[in-house]
């Protein structure tokens, strides 16, 4: 509890780091902050072009189908993959001054999260333009799902960033793991595809659904693509897994942080 109070006391540092990261990201470029919106928009253009002319998909409005899943996934991937080095890269600060070390992964994930929120301005615009009008109930679910994803990403980032200090290969291993993970989630394909394949193996489907990112991605798609409230039955599992991840993450981080200054 003392730890959380201390983290709260250092909230300004978290804000500062997030702000520094967001503002520093496009600093020096001509368009600057505009890139935060421009980037997903251009991505969308590429996907739309790709899947409407070259790789034709039989899914209706495939670009939207992909886009509403891809943006939350990119937040998760960037958190976990980039998060591996978030303690390591701040060696200068760790070895020189005191602050609750948890601030670093929290700031990293929060910065990615805020970035996703900005992107959602574009997402929402695209969703409405595509003619999907999510119900009020569905829209109210959106923050909850985002929160679950945030917790999951934070827990994993805590775990990975602290272990990376002692085992630096993890940073590169995570690159491959997140790539593989993306294809284990129904991001580029539809869940119906998995269901049709796994029809004769119900246990395989169960294992597939154990991946906490699957219900999260599906929930985003339910709300933003189908415009209906998410399937809460699977989301519960994701929430529980996210909570476990967070607890384990904090516990491991708390144990490993004592010798950060010596290892860096």
């Amino acid at each position: 509890m003392k730890l959380f109070r201390e983290i709260y006391e250092y909230r300004q540092m978290i804000f500062g780091l997030v702000k520094r990261d967001l503002r520093g990201r496009y600093k020096g470029s001509v368009l600057g902050f505009l890139w935060t919106f421009l980037n997903p928009l251009l991505q969308l253009l590429v996907y739309t072009f790709l899947f409407s002319t070259i790789l034709r998909s039989d899914i209706d409005k495939y670009y939207l189908h992909l886009f509403v899943a891809l943006i939350p996934w990119m937040f998760f991937a960037a958190s976990v993959q980039g998060g591996a080095g978030c303690v390591l890269n701040q060696a200068g600060m760790i070895t020189k001054i005191y602050f609750p070390r948890e601030v670093l992964p929290i700031a990293h994930v929060t910065s990615q999260f805020v970035n996703m929120l900005y992107t959602f301005v574009v997402v929402m615009a695209v969703v409405l333009l595509a003619g999907v009008f999510p119900s009020l109930m569905a829209l109210l679910q959106l923050p909850i799902i985002m929160f679950i994803e945030y917790c999951l990403a934070l827990g994993l980032t805590m775990l990975i960033s602290s272990v990376t200090v002692y085992f630096r290969d993890l940073e590169y291993i995570m690159g491959i793991v997140t790539m593989a993970w993306q294809f284990l989630c129904p991001v580029v394909y539809s869940i119906d595809l998995v269901e049709s394949i796994a029809k004769s193996y119900p246990w395989a489907m169960k294992i597939y659904m154990l991946n906490p990112m699957t219900p999260i991605v599906l929930a985003f798609r339910d709300i933003l693509y189908y415009g209906k409230p998410a399937d809460l039955s699977t989301l519960w599992l994701a929430a529980v897994l996210a909570a476990i991840c967070l607890i384990v993450g904090f516990a491991v981080f708390g144990r490993l942080k004592c010798r950060f200054a010596e290892e860096l």
Binding site: E9, Q12, F15, M93, I97
Partner: peptide, 19 residues
């Protein structure tokens, strides 16, 4: 890349100060 003033905010925040 940030100004002296902005850095005061981040740097002081590292010492645990609120805005």
């Amino acid at each position: 890349d940030m100004s002296g003033r902005e850095n005061i905010y981040t740097n002081a925040a590292i010492f645990g100060l609120t805005k």
